[in-house]
Design a protein around this nucleic acid. Structure first.
Ligand code: SF4
Ligand code: SF4
Lengths: 162, 162
DNA sequence: CGAATTACGGATACATAATGTCCCTATTCG
DNA sequence: CGAATAGGGACATTATGTATCCGTAATTCG
């Protein structure tokens, strides 16, 4: 079980977008170039974000993406679920129903304890991701990244932002 | 991202094994029949448990599997990691290194904030699974499952246990 | 001892999902 | 109008999960 690489891509892109000034847009091309990723495929990840309503888009030259909400209202979970889907990581195949000792239809009485325990762990994972917003990430990055690189990247991005 | 079905199989098998009397063994064949699973493939999952040291095996007729530790010392995480692997679900592909604004080798200064946040969520998931043992599961199942089915399954299993 | 039964591991085939590319369309900007 | 953009459909390629088959060594039982 491993998350798709699109999750990493989407998170990085949102991190960049969250630093964009109000009203500016950044294109797929710029985001792909900045991260060294295949433009066409990265586009699929960004489309997922768009369909989930996390980003806003404009067409035409100077078009691209910006966040649809404020950075402190966009959580990691939002992005992860937009790309990876919001389904549970443990899917129950009802193998309990095959038990020859049980009357038919017994398993329909609801998910058993094993499934519930796995789902609780799943929820713990989601809760941890729900807690962290891109505003939090911005603060951490600002402390960690050296000022030259920070402003260098900022300039690079603004030069290409529509 | 979805857990392999072998995880569900292994959990169910351990649940059965945890109810086995001291010193008795249950074969792959019986476990497969009980759950309606392909014997050969289930065998791979059980071999993973064996390699992880979670179960003890004997060969020959009347051979099979039993738990290697007490049920209250075997956690869900043990079983999940034995089958699914203990690697992180978020793997970092170092795309930060492609940023044209950064000096070469910058990314080697360690994992960035994004990776750390994802890994913390991963750890929350693992912590939730680590907390629950098969002794806990046994208690829950004992409350939930009707006595007839419980003893019926028990009889079925003991008839086939070596 | 000999036959049956078991776990184990390697080899192989098949199915599904992830990854990546290509091309066409509608929209928007200058 | 012409260039650049998001969006989406149709593939091709690759990796992973699922499943089967068979040979080997160990063990039990008659
Ligand atoms: S509900 Fe529980 S017992 Fe039934 S198949 Fe799912 S995990 Fe197994
Ligand atoms: S360490 Fe952080 S910035 Fe570098 S590739 Fe991994 S997630 Fe991205």
């Amino acid at each position: 079980m491993i998350l798709k690489s699109q999750v990493e891509w989407a998170l990085h892109c949102c991190a960049i977008l969250s630093g964009l000034p109000e009203g500016r847009y950044l294109s797929t091309k710029a985001l792909a170039e900045l991260h060294g990723l295949p433009k066409e495929y990265l586009s699929k990840a960004l489309q997922s974000l768009s369909q989930a309503g996390l980003v806003h888009t404009t067409l035409g030259p100077s078009g691209g993406y910006r966040l649809a909400k404020a950075a402190n209202e966009l959580s990691f979970l939002d992005v992860v679920e937009a790309v990876e889907g919001s389904g549970r990581t443990f899917v129950c195949q009802n193998i309990r129903a095959n038990n020859p000792c049980r009357p038919k239809g017994y398993c329909e009485s609801g998910p058993c304890a094993i499934a519930r325990i796995m789902w609780e762990a799943d929820e713990a994972w989601r809760a941890a991701l729900r807690k962290v917003t891109f505003a939090d990430l911005g603060k951490i990055l600002h402390q960690e990244i050296s000022p030259e690189i920070w402003s260098g990247t900022f300039d690079w991005v603004l030069k290409r932002a529509g």
